[in-house]
Design a protein around this nucleic acid. Structure first.
Lengths: 195, 195
DNA sequence: GATTGTATTGAACGCGCGTTCAGATAATCT
DNA sequence: AGATTATCTGAACGCGCGTTCAATACAATC
């Protein structure tokens, strides 16, 4: 036996990444075996090595792709006029984007420790890159006298932690719509850094 | 060979829990073997089973003890006069307590998924218990017209996520003292829920 | 319809896993 | 001093791990 009818690498590759993302997020990187991922896709474990050199690289590729997409999506987001509108845009964007990729967000916060030093540094750099975009907004607002955060670096980390926390409790079809969640968090963030 | 001079269960038990806490936090529950824990303590793997029925229970006991201590410590904290002082007390307490137990906090947020349903529910209940204590403060302040959070339940989760985030970046001997960190976060929280 | 190249299988590799338990040793008790 | 009890060792159990690779089946091309 070998390849089944209609199988192609353009299909199997993404399916492997999708299965790995789902299983890693659900059970943790170390708790998921290559055989489980293969079973989810419907191939034998050996076939995975046509698409990744090893298990850690599979994880790294998922994290790297997520961070790249996060930054790219923010770059394509329409920029508001002035720091206040830009901050509102960031708050709503971050919540919206993260709620659409709960597995990848979970992975990014949980499994960095399973990367070797080089891979770890690469993801960390992307994270700092993203954070800097928020901090720039805060500093601009501070300079314009619109904000009065006691420390823009800490405020950046505090806001991101607060917004990312939405993923831990939000459930589709719950008490609040995504729109309303955005409204609530924007209200709190706006006041927290207000002059 | 068997027991070495001066070995006692009152010493080995805590040492096992300490080693497990450190290693689980560092590498993740699934990535740490019973043999590694035993090696850290200086005994053979079999000896661990004098102190825990299995690996998952060892994790559960660590998480349970942490949550119990968190709630007990908050109960013993001097209560401020009125919602505003109580909220300030909570903010400063949460940061201080969590910074003193980084490993346990990390575990509590990362490894819940490695518990069976019953153990998971027990820890979740304790977490909700702790959260309720903050929400009560917010609701009291809201009733007194001191606060104007758009949604006390969400504000509770947002504040806790923001405060717990301190553990991800704070380093001893860094730019900011613990006191200053408390000041900064209290400023942001106070304004975020202000009327 | 034969040839070529790609995608996949299935078996195997050495290794470490969680857990059990009979036996050995040190501390304690009578 | 001798018996008892608490503590720990060391070997073993079956099992699944990540990874490799020759063999193989299919698709595409000629």
């Amino acid at each position: 036996m070998a390849r089944k009818t209609g199988s192609h690498s353009e299909i199997t590759g993404p399916r492997i990444r999708g299965a790995a993302l789902k299983l890693f997020a659900r059970h943790g990187f170390a708790a998921v075996s290559m055989r489980q991922i293969a079973a989810e896709v419907g191939v034998q474990a050996g076939a995975l090595y046509l698409y990744t050199p090893d298990k850690e690289t599979l994880l790294f590729d998922l994290l790297k792709a997520h961070m790249d997409e996060l930054i790219a999506a923010w770059e394509e987001e329409p920029k508001g006029d002035g720091p206040l509108a830009r901050l509102e845009g960031f708050v709503r964007f971050h919540i919206r984007f993260n709620l659409e990729r709960t597995d990848a967000v979970f992975l990014s916060y949980m499994e960095l420790r399973n990367l070797g030093p080089g891979n770890f540094a690469a993801i960390e750099a992307l994270r700092r890159d993203y954070e800097t975009r928020l901090e720039t907004i805060l500093r601009d607002g501070q300079a314009a006298g619109l904000f009065a955060a006691p420390d823009t670096k800490i405020a950046t980390l505090a806001i991101i932690a607060m917004l990312t926390g939405v993923n831990t409790w939000y459930r589709e079809g719950g008490r609040l719509s995504r729109q309303k969640v955005g409204d609530i968090y924007w209200d709190m963030v706006r006041k927290a850094v207000a002059a």
